[in-house]
Design a protein around this nucleic acid. Structure first.
Lengths: 194, 194, 194, 194
DNA sequence: AATGAATGAGATTTCATTCAT
DNA sequence: TATGAATGAAATCTCATTCAT
C-alpha cells in the first residue's frame, strides 16, 4: 500500500519537473533555460533534478518524447475513428495535431519549438522522434486525390509548417483548433473565388 | 585612396562578425551560441567583438535588422515590379521571401529561427521588426478575391508559417524557391482533383 | 549532534568569506579587490562565492552591515553602562568606536574606508547604514554643555573624522584605543596651555 | 607664434584629462574609475590618453602631484604671510588646507580620498608625496604652546583627520572653509563651557 | 528523495594597453 | 595628437554537474 503511494509521489515529482521544463523550453528556448530556472519553477534545488534526470539533454529528451507521445496518440486515435474520405482524414489528423498543440500542452509545443540543432548531443534522437511522428502525415497526404502536378511533399510540409507556426500567433478566444484545422484544409483545397 | 580602404576594412570586420553570428544563430540557436563561438568563427578574440557590438543582444539585433532589411527590400522590389493580379502579387511576394530565405542568407533565416522570447532583453525590438516586415503580407492578402467565408488572417499566417518552415527541410537541388512559391500559391488556390 | 556541526561548518564558510573580503577591502579598497582575490584568500574557487553571496556588491553590503553591527553594539553597550556626565559619555562612545576600529576588526574598518560612491549599486544602502550608526554621536554631542558659539555639528564631524582617520596611522604598540579616546576628548575640551 | 599655441593646446588637453580623472577618482575611487570613463569625460577615446600618460597609475600620480602642489602652495603662502602666534599660524594653515580642499578642486580631494593601497604600483610615491606635504603640519604643531601631557602627534593627526573628512559632508552654502578652520582650531583650544 | 555546498569550466563583459595610421 | 581597431588578460557571474549527507 505504501509502495504505490511512494511511486505516485515520485511520479508526481517527475511530472512536475517535466512540466516546468517544457514550459520554460517553450518560453525561452532550450539554450535560454537553465537547470536552475527549472529547479526554481519546481520548488526544488538544482542539484535535486539530477536524481530524476541524468542531464539537461536527458530532460529535454524526456520532454520531447512526452510531446511526441501526446501528438502521436491524438493523431492515431483521430485516424482510427475517422471515415474513409482522404481529405476528411487529413483534416482529422490536423485537428488532432492542433488540438494538442494549442490546448496549452507545453510538451507538444516543445516538439515544434526546439530544433535538434539546439542540443547537439541529442540531435539524432530528436530528429528520429520528430520523423517518426511526422510519418503519419506522409501516409495521409499520400492518400489524397491530387492533380498530377501537385507535389505531395510540398503539400505535406506546407501543412506542417503552417500548423507548427500556430503557437506563435494563436489566441484562445478567437478560433478553436478544430476550426483552424478546417480552415487550413479548406484553404489547401482551394480558396479562390470563382 | 587610403580612406576608402580603411572604411572598407572596418566595414568588412563588422560584416564578418554579423555573418558568422548569423550562421551560428541559425545552426545552434541564440542561446546555443556563445560570443566565443562567434569570435572563433571570425578569427578574433571574444573581447574584440565588443568594440563593434555592445552586447550579445545588440549583435543579435543587428543581425535581425539586416535580415529584415534583406527580406523587406526583396519583397518591396517584387511588389513594385509585379503586375496587378492579386494572386500573382502574392506569389511574387512569396517568391521574394523564399528566395532570400533559401539562397543561403543566414540573416533572413535568423529572422524566422530566433524567437523574441529567446532574448528577453531584445524581445520588444525583435517583435517590432518582425511585425513591421510582415505587414506587407497583410496588405497583399487583403487584396485577394476570396470566398466570403475565408479567414484572411488564417490564410496569411498559414502561408507565413509554411514559408518560414522551409529552412528546416529545404534541399537546394530539388526545387527552386520560385518553384516552391508557385507550389505554395497554387495549393492555396486549390489542389483538389476535380 | 551532527546538525549543529553542519550549521557551524556552513556558518564558518560564510564567516570566512566575509572576513577575507573585509580584510582585502580594507587593504586595497573595494574596486581594487577582485572576487578572485577573495576566493583565493578563502581557499575556494571564485564561482563558489556566489553560492553564499549573490554579487560582489551584496558581499560588500554584508561586510558593511557586520561592521556597523559591531560598532553599534560596542557604542550602545558603552553608553548603557556609562555615567551621566556628558563628556564622559562622549569619551565612552569614542573609546568604544576606536576599540572596535583598531583592534583588528576589518569589518569596522570597511565602514570607514569604503565610501558609498565606490559601489554605485549599493550606494543608498551604504549611506543609510552609516547614518543609522552615526546617529548615536548626534545624540551624545547634543547633550554636551558647550559655549553658545560652538557648532555642535562641526564638533561631531570633527571627532568622527579624527577617529575614522586613525586606521591610517595607528600603530598597536604606541597607545591604546582607550588612551587615544581620552586624548581626543581632552583635546576637544581644551589643550592650550594657560 | 604657432609653437606656443600648440603647447598651450597640448597643455589644455593634458589639463583636461587631469581634471576629468581627478573628478572621477574622487567620485568613484581609483579602482572604480576606468580609463574609458576618463576618456569619455574628456571627449577622447581611451587609447588617446596614452599619448599623454604612460599608464593609469602614472595618471593618478600626476593628479596626486597636482593636488599636493596646490595644497603645499596654499599652506606655504599662508604661513609665509601669517603672524607669529603659533595658534594663529595653525589656523592659517588649516584654513589654507580647507580652502583648497573644499573650493571644488578635485585634485586636492584625490590626495585625501585615494589611499596608497588602492594603487599598489604607485604606493611608495603616493606615501612620499603625502608625507612631504603633511610635514608642514608637523612643524606648525610642534610650535604650539601645549600642556606637557598633550601628545602633539595625536593633536596633529586629529586635525588632519578632521580636515580630510570634510569633503564627505561639506556643503558649500552653510559655512566657509575659513569659518570651519576657525571652528576646528577653537575646538582644539577648548570648547567646554566653564 | 532531496539538499547544501561546492566545483570547474565557461559565459558575457570590461579593462588597461598597444599600435598602425 | 589622436583615432580606430584590436588584444589578451582578467573581471564578474552563470552553468551543468557532483556528492556527501
Amino acid at each position: 500500500m505504501s509502495a504505490p503511494a511512494q511511486t505516485l509521489r515520485s511520479d508526481n515529482r517527475r511530472e512536475l519537473i517535466l512540466e516546468s521544463a517544457a514550459e520554460l523550453f517553450v518560453r525561452h528556448g532550450y539554450g535560454g533555460t537553465s537547470m536552475r530556472d527549472i529547479a526554481k519553477a519546481t520548488g526544488m534545488l538544482s542539484g535535486s533534478l539530477y536524481y530524476h534526470f541524468a542531464s539537461k539533454e536527458a530532460l529535454l529528451l524526456s520532454v520531447f518524447e512526452e510531446g511526441v507521445r501526446l501528438l502521436s496518440d491524438a493523431v492515431d486515435h483521430a485516424l482510427a475513428t475517422s471515415p474513409d474520405d482522404p481529405w476528411e482524414r487529413l483534416q482529422a489528423a490536423a485537428q488532432a495535431h492542433l488540438s494538442v498543440l494549442l490546448d496549452g500542452s507545453h510538451f507538444a509545443q516543445v516538439v515544434v519549438r526546439v530544433l535538434p540543432g539546439d542540443a547537439p548531443g541529442a540531435q539524432a534522437e530528436l530528429i528520429a522522434l520528430r520523423d517518426q511522428y511526422e510519418a503519419r502525415f506522409h501516409t495521409v497526404v499520400d492518400a489524397l486525390p491530387l492533380t498530377p502536378d501537385t507535389d505531395r511533399s510540398v503539400l505535406r510540409l506546407m501543412l506542417l509548417g503552417a500548423m507548427n507556426h500556430t503557437p506563435v500567433w494563436f489566441q484562445p478566444g478567437r478560433a478553436t483548433p478544430a476550426q483552424l484545422a478546417r480552415h487550413f484544409i479548406r484553404n489547401l483545397r482551394g480558396t479562390a473565388a470563382p
